[in-house]
């Protein structure tokens, strides 16, 4: 931890960032993000396996941007998100200082996104076996059973949009659910509005979701909505060989094509 504190301290002192985002144990004993602006506050930073939140989400926040250059402590999923966000041209290399702890416990400071790309590819997390299993299990049900399953789960959505707010890839300044000319998605959280919302959300994250599982973690209703994007990522990978969060250059299944893409349902 000392090494991390020193790193943050020096980053703030040498001016490569005026705000450093890390985890802390709050007064209430919760793991929360902390926003460090003074070198002497660096010892607030904490890191452990219990640090789950994907901090990349704060990169988009206006009040964070107001600080100018920002430093961020990133776990592997945050790194993947940052790389994807970078590939999508949402951040500039010189405005972000990224720090992580490698598997040997050493502090790594990245000079640029190329280094992040290399690091992420060397340390990429395996797909969550539990999620893969659940996707597999659902895929083996009959169509009607799947519809029942999802209707049951998604009907309980209260449309708090915590899943959207927590997702670093959901950075649109105006989300489709907020558009009312036309009203693409039914605003109320009846089952129709909920299913539309989740189909839309999953489509927008297909091949972009880095599988940090923040959406499912934050859902007050415990809806396993990450399975939708896990499934679509799988499709993007199988069909187009594309994976999110591994490249610093845009590689997004739906923004490109191959002349010989295969399908078996278009007549």
């Amino acid at each position: 931890m000392q090494e991390l504190h020193n790193k943050i301290k020096s980053i703030l002192e040498n001016g490569s960032a005026s705000l450093f985002i890390a985890y802390q144990k709050s007064r209430e004993g919760k793991i929360t993000p902390t926003f460090i602006t003074k070198p002497e506050q660096s010892q607030k930073a904490y890191f452990g396996d219990d640090c789950k939140q994907n901090l990349a989400v704060y990169i988009h926040k206006q009040e964070v941007k107001n600080f100018g250059k920002v430093g961020i402590f990133a776990n592997i999923y945050t790194l993947k998100s940052l790389l994807q966000i970078y590939a999508e041209n949402q951040i500039r290399d010189d405005y972000l200082k990224v720090v992580t702890i490698n598997p040997n416990g050493a502090i790594v400071e990245f000079a640029n996104f190329m280094e992040i790309e290399n690091y992420v590819n060397e340390n990429k997390p395996a797909p969550n076996p539990e999620d893969m299993e659940r996707v597999e299990k659902l895929s083996n049900l009959s169509r009607e059973e799947r519809w029942d399953y999802w209707l049951n789960e998604l009907s309980t959505c209260i449309k708090c949009y915590a899943c959207r707010a927590a997702c670093p890839m959901c950075y649109c300044t105006k989300c489709t659910v907020d558009c009312n000319q036309p009203q693409w998605i039914s605003t109320p959280s009846h089952s129709l509005g909920n299913i539309e919302w989740h189909i839309m959300r999953a489509m927008h994250l297909a091949g972009r979701c880095v599988e940090c599982n923040e959406c499912a973690r934050v859902c007050p209703m415990d809806i396993p909505l990450n399975l939708l994007t896990v499934k679509l990522n799988d499709t993007a990978n199988i069909e187009f060989g594309q994976q999110a969060g591994l490249k610093g250059e845009l590689d997004y299944a739906l923004s490109t094509f191959k002349v010989d893409d295969k399908e078996n349902f278009i007549r």
Binding site: V64, Y161, A166, P220
Partner: peptide, 17 residues
């Protein structure tokens, strides 16, 4: 308020529960 809410991601969870 800024100090307290930099962490807030602006969802509706707190109000809805």
């Amino acid at each position: 308020w800024l100090d307290q809410s930099l962490a807030c991601i602006g969802c509706g969870a707190c109000a809805y529960v």
